[in-house]
C-alpha cells in the first residue's frame, strides 16, 4: 500500500511533475502528430466518397474527433474538480487551469466544422436542436471555468470554486451524449458505439479511429505542456524554479 500512496503523493508535487513530464510532452506531440497525419491523409485522400454526401462527409474526420475530445476534456476537468474538492491536490487544479482553454478551443472547432458540414448536407449551418444547443452550452461552461478563475484573486479559493463549478457543469455531459437518442434531432445518432457493430463502412472507419486516437494523444501533449507552464508560473517563488530560470539565463 505504501507504494501507491507514494506515487499519489509524488503526483501531487509540482516539482516532481515538472521534471517527470518533459519527455512525455515530446513523445505525445510526436505520436499525436503522426496519428493525425496518417488519419487525415487516409481520410481526406484515400477513403472512398460517401454515396449520399459525396466528399463533404470528410469533414467528419475533423468534426467527430474534436467534438468527442471537447466532451472528454470537460469530463476530465470534472474528475479533476472532484479530486481537488476531496483531496485538495494542487495538480488537479493545475490540470483544470490548463485544460479549460484547450477544451474551449476544441468545442469551437467542433461547432465550426459542424457548421461547415451542415451547410452542404442539412442545407443550413445551424439548427437549434438538442445536440447543437448542448454543445454550445459546453462552450459556455468552459468560458465559465476560465472567467471564474480570473475573477477570484486568491489562488486557493479560485481553485476550490472552479472545481465546484466543473462538478456542477458535468450534468451537461449526459445531455450531450444522449441528446441524439432521447430527442428527435437533425443531428444523426452515433455511428460508433462500444456495444454494437459500427454503422459505418470499415474503409471510412479506420481513418476516423486514427484521427481520434491521434487527437487524444496530441491534446494530452498540449494540456501537459500547458500544465508545465502553469506549474512554473505558480511555483516561481520556489528555489527549484529559480534554479531553472538561472540555468536558462546562463
Amino acid at each position: 500500500m505504501g507504494s501507491i500512496k507514494d506515487v499519489f503523493h509524488r503526483m501531487g508535487s509540482p516539482r516532481f511533475f515538472y521534471h517527470g513530464s518533459s519527455l512525455w510532452v515530446r513523445g505525445l506531440y510526436i505520436g499525436g502528430t503522426l496519428g493525425l497525419i496518417i488519419g487525415s491523409f487516409w481520410g481526406l485522400a484515400l477513403a472512398p466518397p460517401d454515396k449520399y454526401q459525396g466528399d463533404s462527409f470528410r469533414i467528419m474526420y475533423i468534426h467527430v474527433p474534436s467534438a468527442h475530445l471537447a466532451e472528454m476534456v470537460y469530463f476530465a476537468c470534472a474528475v479533476a474538480g472532484f479530486v481537488y474538492v476531496v483531496w485538495r491536490m494542487k495538480m488537479a487544479d493545475v490540470f483544470i487551469a490548463a485544460a479549460a482553454p484547450v477544451g474551449a478551443i476544441l468545442t469551437l472547432l467542433s461547432l465550426a466544422s459542424g457548421i461547415l458540414w451542415g451547410m452542404p448536407t442539412w442545407g443550413t449551418g445551424w439548427v437549434w436542436d438538442m445536440r447543437t444547443t448542448s454543445v454550445l452550452v459546453l462552450l459556455f461552461l468552459f468560458f465559465g471555468l476560465i472567467a471564474l478563475r480570473q475573477a477570484i484573486p486568491r489562488l486557493d479559493r479560485a481553485a476550490y470554486s472552479v472545481a465546484i463549478l466543473a462538478l456542477v457543469g458535468v450534468v451537461n455531459i449526459p445531455i450531450i451524449k444522449y441528446s441524439v437518442e432521447w430527442f428527435t434531432t437533425l443531428h444523426q445518432p452515433a455511428s460508433i458505439t462500444f456495444t454494437n457493430e459500427p454503422t459505418i463502412e470499415t474503409s471510412m472507419l479506420w481513418p476516423l479511429l486514427f484521427n481520434t486516437t491521434g487527437l487524444y494523444i496530441f491534446i494530452a501533449g498540449v494540456i501537459l505542456a500547458a500544465m508545465r507552464v502553469e506549474v512554473l508560473k505558480r511555483e516561481q517563488a520556489t528555489e527549484w524554479v529559480r534554479d531553472i530560470t538561472r540555468s536558462m539565463q546562463r
Binding site: 444547443t133 452550452v137 459556455f140 461552461l141 468560458f143 465559465g144 472567467a147 471564474l148 475573477a151 477570484i152 463549478l165 456542477v168 457543469g169 450534468v171 451537461n172
Partner: peptide
C-alpha cells in the same frame, strides 16, 4: 467577490438553458 453581475450571468446562464 464584490463584482458578481456579468460573471454570475456567464456562470449561470448556460445551466438555465
Amino acid at each position: 467577490l464584490g463584482r458578481g453581475g456579468l460573471l454570475l450571468a456567464v456562470l449561470v446562464m448556460p445551466l438555465y438553458i
